[in-house]
Amino acid sequence: MVRVKLWGSLRSLAGDREVLEVEARTLKEAIDAILEEVPALEPQIKRGISFSVDGLIYRDSWFVPIDEAKEIVMMPRMVGG
């Protein structure tokens, strides 16, 4: 199980949950498991999300390997300059 912290507005969409625990080996598997557990996150995920894995930001890099030893944070994608 990996622990995925939810950042900002994602928490309110997930019923004020701060952390989700899911079975996943990649960020894509984490997204799929999160959507299964919290379908209300789907509109935001479609708009765009980013992940921080041990402090490195990933956008559209869904096959990054993850495991329970990593700090994983899911956040709405930031836009702008």
Rank of each mutant, 00 (worst) to 15 (best):
A33S: 12
G80L: 09
W7R: 01
R17G: 03
K46D: 15
S9Y: 14
L13C: 11
L20N: 01
A24P: 01
V38R: 05
E21K: 14
Q44F: 11
I34Y: 12
I57D: 02
I34G: 03
M1T: 12
R11P: 06
E21C: 10
M78D: 12
L6F: 00
S9E: 15
E36M: 07
S12Y: 15
G81I: 03
I49E: 01
A24H: 07
K5H: 11
S12E: 15
V38D: 01
Y58F: 15
D54M: 06
G15W: 15
V53G: 03
G55L: 04
V22L: 07
W62Q: 02
V73F: 08
E18A: 12
D67E: 07
P76V: 02
I57W: 03
G48C: 02
Y58I: 01
I34Q: 05
A30W: 01
L35H: 11
V64Q: 07
V53H: 08
S9K: 15
L10W: 04
I34F: 07
I31M: 14
I45V: 13
V38I: 14
G48S: 08
I31L: 15
L56G: 06
I34P: 05
R17S: 03
I49V: 13
P39Q: 07
R25G: 01
M75A: 06
A69I: 06
R25Q: 03
I57A: 04
M75G: 05
A69E: 12
R47W: 06
V19Y: 12
E23F: 10
E29K: 00
R77W: 08
M74C: 02
I45Y: 06
D60P: 02
P76I: 01
S50L: 07
W62F: 11
I34H: 06
V4I: 09
R47L: 13
A40G: 09
R59D: 02
I72M: 04
W62T: 00
W62H: 01
I66A: 04
I34R: 14
M75W: 06
V53F: 07
R3E: 05
D32R: 03
V64P: 05
D32L: 13
D67R: 14
R3M: 06
G8D: 10
E71W: 08
G8I: 05
K46A: 11
R3Q: 05
A33Q: 04
P39G: 07
G55W: 05
L20P: 00
D54N: 12
R47E: 11
L56K: 11
L10I: 03
L41R: 04
V38F: 14
F51K: 06
L56V: 12
K28H: 09
E71I: 03
R17E: 03
E29R: 00
K5C: 02
R47C: 06
P43K: 05
T26R: 13
K28W: 06
G8F: 05
R17F: 02
K70L: 08
E37W: 09
L56H: 10
Y58G: 03
L35M: 13
S50M: 12
I31F: 10
D16R: 15
E23Q: 09
E68S: 14
F63R: 14
G81S: 12
V64C: 07
P43W: 09
V38G: 03
A30S: 01
T26K: 10
V2D: 12
L56E: 12
F51Q: 04
R77Q: 04
L41H: 07
R25E: 00
F51N: 02
